[in-house]
């Protein structure tokens, strides 16, 4: 896949970092404001897709990228399950138990395990949407060859 023109590349350089940071903001504040893991993950994936589209990359690099992203996605899902199961070992023997201290309503570090869930859901969603995008490109490139 070829990259786009200089104007697009320059604008992407300016925008992509901000979009990525905004995604992280949405994920981290998931338990306080509307949004959360899924919305923030989609925003992060959007910034990654933006960069890939603007700068393009060759076929082999795409395959390598896809492999790495799959690892991250599986890892995030496993961590999510691990947190869910850890509720089983701490306290009341119940999955999805919120075993950490709840803190003060409205503070950034509060609500027990919910921020952790949000972070891993965000990672998972960003990785999986990026995988979908990459694999669709890979299919297309394969058929072009």
């Amino acid at each position: 896949m070829k990259g786009m023109t200089l104007i697009v590349k320059k604008t992407t350089q300016l925008m992509a970092g901000i979009v990525f940071m905004y995604g992280i903001y949405v994920i981290v504040h998931g338990h306080l404001t509307p949004g959360g893991g899924f919305a923030g993950g989609v925003i992060i994936a959007g910034s990654l897709i933006l960069v890939t589209l603007a700068f393009g990359s060759d076929f082999l690099k795409l395959v390598k990228e896809e492999a790495g992203t799959t690892l991250i996605e599986s890892f995030a899902t496993l961590m999510f399950i691990l947190i869910a199961v850890s509720g089983f070992f701490f306290g009341t023997r119940i999955f999805f138990n919120n075993f950490l201290p709840k803190g003060v309503v409205g503070h950034l570090i509060s609500a027990g395990v919910l921020p952790l869930y949000n972070i891993f859901v965000g990672t998972e969603v960003a990785a999986s949407i990026f995988i979908i995008f990459l694999s669709l490109i890979i299919f297309k490139e394969e058929s072009a060859q």
Binding site: S135, L136, F139, K140, S143
Partner: peptide, 8 residues
């Protein structure tokens, strides 16, 4: 994904 494969 299936549609792209079918097209190929």
């Amino acid at each position: 994904a299936i549609i792209i494969r079918l097209y190929r």
